[in-house]
């Protein structure tokens, strides 16, 4: 399987990538790790006339600490995230999520920015960045702009990113000491993508849930926070009984879609099961 022909250009800076996007209008696409785009191009589901490779753009790489946040370049690979000592120390939820994506080869090529720009409904990062309240830092012809993650995911494969913008960095507030976390996924047995994945962040004060944040990916067109579950947990004892009670609300009004592997009904059932599991794992980490 060979993609349709295209013109290939290497961008050396974000500014150059933006001006190339402007110059080619809707005919061009950015290329990051290529692990979503190239498979689509091989199937000819996507046929961009121009590919703008972000590979050489140094400023899009690397992870650094800035105040109480960790700032991650869009071109950072899943493997670099999963093995970064800084990410593992300050945002272990994101490292745990990155480590569960696909397989080693996919993690060696795929990037954080590519995954968040692509917004595959079965991608893993969306649930993690939603509970972490990340900020998406983009650059376009009009300059830089920051989009809070709560406004990022618009629909299946659709984000708030404009066609002539590059997602440059993801700014993630560091997790606080004593906060529990977990990313729990059910991988599709063939592809490794999430049938569903649940991200949890849990703050507990003297045995009582002070704040719980829960998000789910894979079940519907886009990843979502689960506010009903979060509200039901606030102020409750941090124990299995209240987690089980709150997790029942995970499927309440959840927009689940049937796919070849699982029915919407089964996914709604799994949402409650995985929410409870995720909360229990997060609680274990509070206690550690």
């Amino acid at each position: 399987m060979i993609p349709a022909t295209f013109e290939y250009v290497r961008a050396k800076s974000v500014r150059e990538a933006v001006s190339l996007l402007q110059q080619h209008g809707g005919r061009a696409k950015l290329l990051a790790g290529g692990h979503s785009l190239l498979p689509l191009m091989k199937l000819r589901l996507s046929q961009p006339e121009v590919l703008i490779d972000l590979g050489p753009v140094e400023e899009l790489r690397g992870v650094r600490e800035e105040g109480s946040s960790v700032v991650i370049g869009a071109m950072t690979t899943h493997d670099e995230l999963a093995s970064s000592p800084l990410v593992r120390e300050r945002v272990p939820l994101l490292a745990e999520c990155a480590a569960q994506i696909g397989d080693v080869q996919v993690r060696n090529r795929g990037t954080l920015g590519g995954s968040l720009a692509h917004a595959d409904p079965a991608a893993d990062y969306p649930a993690a960045v939603l509970v972490l309240d990340a900020q998406m830092e983009c650059e376009g012809p009009a300059g830089a702009r920051t989009v809070p993650v709560s406004q990022w995911f618009v629909d299946m494969l659709t984000t708030a990113l404009r066609p002539d913008e590059v997602l440059c960095r993801v700014r993630v507030p560091a997790q606080t000491r004593g906060q529990g976390w977990s990313y729990t996924k059910l991988p599709h047995p063939a592809s490794g993508y999430s049938l569903l994945g649940v991200a949890c962040l849990l703050s507990v004060d003297g045995g009582t849930v002070r704040e719980a944040r829960v998000a789910i990916t894979g079940v519907g067109p886009k990843a979502l926070r689960l506010p009903k579950v979060e509200q039901a947990l606030a102020g409750k004892p941090a124990d299995e009984a209240s987690f089980a009670e709150a997790a029942k609300l995970a499927s309440d009004g959840l927009d689940a879609t049937d796919d070849l592997y699982a029915s919407a009904e089964y996914k709604r059932h799994l949402a409650a099961v995985y929410t409870k599991r995720g909360l229990l794992r997060a609680l274990e980490r509070v206690r550690q």
Binding site: Y8, R10, L31, G34, H35, L38, P39, D53, G55, D79, V104, Q105, V106, N108, R109
Partner: peptide, 20 residues
């Protein structure tokens, strides 16, 4: 699978020009 700069990658999902 081949090693690209030391890391295992699926070479059916990498363009030759990306390996410059």
């Amino acid at each position: 699978t081949v090693l690209l700069n030391g890391k295992a990658v699926k070479s059916c999902t990498v363009l030759a020009v990306q390996a410059e």
